[in-house]
Design a protein around this nucleic acid. Structure first.
Length: 573
RNA sequence: GCGCUCGUAGCUCAGCUGGAUAGAGCAUCGGACUUCGAAUCCGGCGGUCGGGUGUUCGAAUCACCCCGGGCGCGCCA
């Protein structure tokens, strides 16, 4: 269910019935349990508007709310809040419904599904994926899972950097320094080596630079030999990329790289010129934004064709916009890209609006991954860290921790468990805080197995499973009904009831960390419940059945939530 | 210079778009394993929310000004 939305509607109805006013109820969870479970704040602004004493208005509203079967207690407090306490029986009945809804755990889908393209990950061909791609990939994958669960139709698109000037260098470099054998065994290593040599040579020798540009021109004009070479670069890189994505459990519906839009580029520029959106400036074709308030003071133009006639990534991005509108008929297009590209996207979206696009366009930015020195994460000798080596280290560290802790994991399972824990720890660390802020990468915290970290949640999940194993129970047969008596039971139940709101809010705002917060709080409340309330050894059959149901609901919500974050669950760890 | 962004407990971070006495984790101190997994739980300590002014019933949140950090700014992506 969506508890907060339900209460909001209940509150609006109460304002209408008691005061004849159409006003937002503004129902929020209370910060402090002594103010009840939720508070209705809507009376205060209304009182001001009507020039009446807030508490006088709040009194009949509270009375109206008190009549609802959902509300145990509604009382006026402070300057004019109405504090609401849920009736445990009502709450229990709602959770019983969620329990029976195996398909969606009681979380309703949105009324109007949108078609949404999510542009994420986007690594470059001929290069290793590095930590810079980590956040886009992990955050993007989670946002997709959230939007999909919320009921939208989502197309995940890997907008590969597979086109552009670097390919002239690579082809020329391959001709001069390339090794077929090396390309076959370690494609990316070889391509990176070639690129390095080629760019050094290009700086020292202008003729080499000319050659590279000539190769690029041949490639772009469709020369079969150049094309074949490019295709090999792409294909061999894909093998390495696929390996990383497999480890991360990330998939894409589309792999529409920059090259997919190449044929559209001249048309895009012509259209922008024709519509008077772009104009020539100092030889280049540019869009200026004097008429867009938020961009008027920025002088940087949006260049869609260089002086030498070549197109640029902004050109490709406009083409992509057009394609997503005309081909996918997308309602919404989301870009999960470093915040530092904020200006580029503001400009791109402004171009979209100039083109009359109604598609909702969003740049979902994220901050930089920092090392413990507060600077962008690098290896000790200052190199970029490849994603593959980062994941290797995560798994190795997790395995070490598991052995140190002396857990009941048989040796043959340590590999698979440490994989789930290690990769999960990395993902969780990335997702748990507001994506816009930079985040400090800290192995020890991540895999410390304490506090707000992935392993703690996986542990909580496994612990619930252990109860079922111990009792030889099939949780699927758990049917309650829930009896919420002990304070720990009630506290856990109230939190479980918020899941639907959390998921929808997180999906709408593209903020996976809200799910992290919720799951962490569920795991803690479950642990407290677990300490205080015997499940298998409960005093009577009714209590036992209720607690088993509560466990089952908890485990499903943890499992579902972890899946939305891209973490796998482990039955025994 | 212009623009964006951040500043909350010793550390790492939340704070639901204006609500009540600002919350977590880690660290630290003190408790709890003969009962379902102690990778756990219970409790204590810890704050002029960078500073100031304003908006109003009410500000960590909104506006403006300072201070301090990070980032971005014509033919790379």
């Amino acid at each position: 269910m969506r508890l907060e939305r339900f209460l909001d509607e209940l509150g609006s109805a109460a304002l209408r019935d008691a005061l004849g006013a159409e006003a937002p109820a503004v129902v929020r969870a209370t910060a402090d349990a002594k103010h009840g479970d939720f508070q209705l704040n809507g009376v205060l602004p209304l009182a001001k508007q009507l020039k009446k004493a807030p508490r006088d208005l709040a009194t009949p509203v509270a009375a109206a709310l008190g009549k609802s079967e959902a509300i145990e207690k509604a009382e006026v407090a402070g300057p004019g809040f109405v504090n609401l306490t849920l009736r445990p029986e009502w709450l229990a009945a709602r959770l019983d419904e969620d329990l029976r809804d195996v398909a969606r755990d009681g979380v309703p889908a949105v009324e109007r599904a949108q078609r949404i393209v999510v542009d994420f990950s986007s690594p470059n061909i001929a290069k290793q994926m590095h930590v810079g791609h980590l956040r886009s990939t992990i955050i993007g994958a989670s946002i997709i899972a959230l939007l999909r669960y919320a009921g939208h139709e989502v197309i995940g698109d890997n907008h590969l950097g597979d086109w552009g000037t670097q390919f002239g260098m690579l082809i020329a470099g391959m001709r001069h320094f390339g090794s077929e054998d090396a390309l076959a065994t370690d494609a990316i290593g070889e391509l990176e080596r070639i690129y390095r040599l080629a760019s050094e040579r290009g700086k020292a020798d202008p003729k080499f630079g000319d050659e590279a540009r000539a190769e690029l021109a041949k490639l772009q004009s469709g020369d079969p030999e150049s094309r074949a070479m490019w295709e090999r670069f792409v294909a061999t890189t894909r093998v390495a990329l696929d390996a990383v994505y497999a480890r991360l459990g990330v998939t894409f519906e589309e792999w529409l790289g920059e090259s997919a839009y190449d044929a559209m580029l001249p048309g895009v520029v012509a259209m922008l010129l024709e519509k008077g959106i772009a104009r020539e400036d100092d030889g280049a074709i540019c869009v200026f934004f004097d008429d867009v308030p938020e961009l008027a003071k920025v002088e940087t133009p949006f260049i869609v064709r260089k002086r030498d006639g070549a197109f640029m990534y902004p050109t490709t991005d406009v083409a992509t916009l057009v394609y997503r509108r005309d081909h996918f008929h997308a309602d919404r297009s989301i870009y999960v890209v470093d915040v530092r590209q904020g200006l580029h996207f503001k400009q791109l979206f402004a171009v979209g609006r100039k083109l009359g696009m109604t598609m909702r366009l969003e740049h979902i930015g994220f901050g930089t991954v920092l090392g413990d020195d507060g600077k962008p994460l690098k290896t000790r000798d200052g190199k970029v860290i490849t994603l593959a080596s980062l994941l290797d280290e995560a798994e190795a560290r997790a395995a070490t921790r598991i052995r140190e802790e002396g857990l009941e994991v048989p040796e043959e399972e340590i590999l698979s468990v440490s994989r789930a824990v290690g990769i999960g720890a990395v993902k969780y660390a990335d997702l748990r805080q507001n994506r816009l802020s930079d985040y400090q990468f800290d192995w020890d915290k991540m895999i410390s197995f304490k506090g707000n970290a992935g392993p703690y949640l996986q542990y909580a999940y496994a612990r619930v499973g252990s109860i079922f194993r111990k009792g030889a129970l099939d949780p699927a047969t758990a049917s309650g009904p829930l009896l919420l008596v002990a304070p720990e039971e009630l506290a856990l139940a109230k939190q479980l009831a918020r899941f639907g709101d959390v998921v929808h809010d997180a999906a709408e705002s593209c903020e996976p960390h809200r799910v992290c917060d919720h799951l962490f709080s569920i795991a803690r409340l479950f642990s407290s419940f677990y300490e205080a309330c015997p499940v298998l050894k409960a005093d009577d059959a009714g209590t036992r059945a209720s607690r088993i149901a509560l466990c089952w609901l908890t485990q499903r919500q943890l499992g579902r939530g972890l899946a939305l974050l891209g973490l796998s669950t482990i039955d025994k760890m």
